[in-house]
Design a protein around this nucleic acid. Structure first.
Lengths: 241, 241
DNA sequence: TATTCTTATTGTATTTTATACTATAACTAC
DNA sequence: GTAGTTATAGTATAAAATACAATAAGAATA
């Protein structure tokens, strides 16, 4: 058969933008490539080539499970990056071929959004030297088009929250204060919110339930704790329809 | 190098869901595969393998240009479909290998949404026997996962309209009545809209401008025609920010 | 030309939601 | 006990969404 050169036959990877919230700003989970081939400290998004027998969602779950130990993390495919130019940099290609022990000329990637409590203990992953939470405002220059991917994921997370408001609670501890929740919204929308109006709105949301507990060990009046009630949230969904 | 079997190396295609509106319901543009290998009338989404030197957006533009003659159609990537099972059906694989003259075992696809005025004259495309607008309520069973792709594209088009309301005018003639516009919204959201409230809202939208023209050749009171003003629309975008 | 038929056109009252705005209470640290 | 910091709560106004029906215009037909 002819035409072997005309059509792209390529490796396909997934790359995961995992957000975490440190009660102040959004952070992205980056991994450090093993430095054998890299010239300097060299951070990138966690990812993997897709295996023969899995689909992209399964590959993304595998990557996230490797990092966090969680089997079924909340995750969302959000865009494919396919430019032939994304594997332009010889350093990047050399690292790929080292890491995957395959000759790789062209590579497209399917990017995923995911959310993780920032205090969670992370696994050591053989493929990487270290894992690090990096504030979105202080991202290093990363290989491939990973900077662009994070950029676009920040727009995507807003659409995701609007579509499914429950996902914000993946970024908070199971008991949280109203101000933590508000600051999370402020970080996602990059916009200050009026404290009183926010309070009024939270009062009206039945699936955010106030507890009879308060913060401890804080150097000021301790705030009430709240929890997210998944059952009430799901009921709400069916009530609206 | 080892590991050649472990990682997926595959062909990648784009498939386009092109919507058209016939003043009543949404239609999808389907193509008929050349029947040498198919058992019956055999409709599918238009698509193509991606070439070596292009990215997915360019491939989708190429497919749409082939169908419509339009160089820069409005288009939006919306999801990758990557299941190993999508090329399970031997008929589908046989057609692929016939159409592309390549041995193709696994194939993932990146799906695109696009919009087209339904009266537009379409091109003959050598690869296909015919092109047809098909109402979304009467879709045939299609090869690969094309039924699922259309299904998901219907959810996507609503998010798209919310994000960029101007795209609905790609589905209407350049001069349209208020009722055509309303019926288009009703088709997209699958929900009846109150005529008077809709009218009130349209009045307040400065980029939908009433003309001093009316319908002709209608068997009832002729309605006023409106046009979409792109310049006013773009101004609006900057005003909000 | 009178009648019928179909669609176009318009306004008001009500409810809901968003916004702007500040004073006091509770707790810790010193 | 005083200073400092954050938590908590309500009202008035504006804007947006919703519910609802009667009349006008034109074409077709008798």
């Amino acid at each position: 058969m002819s035409g072997k050169d005309q059509f792209m036959r390529t490796y396909v990877s997934v790359d995961c933008v995992v957000f975490g919230f440190d009660s102040n700003q959004l952070n992205v989970l980056l991994v450090e490539r093993n430095a054998q081939l890299a010239h300097s400290r060299d951070l990138k998004l966690p990812g993997s080539l897709i295996y023969q027998d899995e689909n992209a969602d399964e590959a993304a779950h595998r990557v996230l499970n490797e990092l966090t130990g969680i089997k079924k993390m909340t995750l969302k495919q959000f865009k494919s990056f396919t430019s032939p130019k994304r594997t332009q940099n010889p350093d990047d290609v050399r690292w790929l071929e080292f890491a995957y022990n395959n000759k790789i000329d062209r590579l497209i990637t399917i990017s995923y959004l995911s959310l993780c409590k920032i205090n969670r203990r992370l696994n050591n992953v053989a493929k990487y030297q270290s894992l690090d939470w990096c504030p979105v405002s202080e991202l290093p220059v990363m290989p491939f088009d990973h900077n662009q991917i994070v950029e676009e994921s920040l727009e995507e997370i807003r659409r995701w929250v609007e579509f499914d408001p429950a996902i914000v609670f993946e970024l908070l501890p199971s008991k949280f204060t109203e101000s933590e929740l508000r600051k999370l919204y402020e970080a996602i929308y990059r916009k200050e919110l009026d404290i009183r109006n926010f309070h009024k709105k939270i009062l009206g949301v039945e699936y955010i339930v106030p507890l009879d507990e308060r913060q401890t060990k804080v150097a000021h009046r301790a705030a009430r704790l709240y929890k997210f009630d998944k059952i009430l949230y799901n009921k709400r969904m069916t009530t609206i329809e």
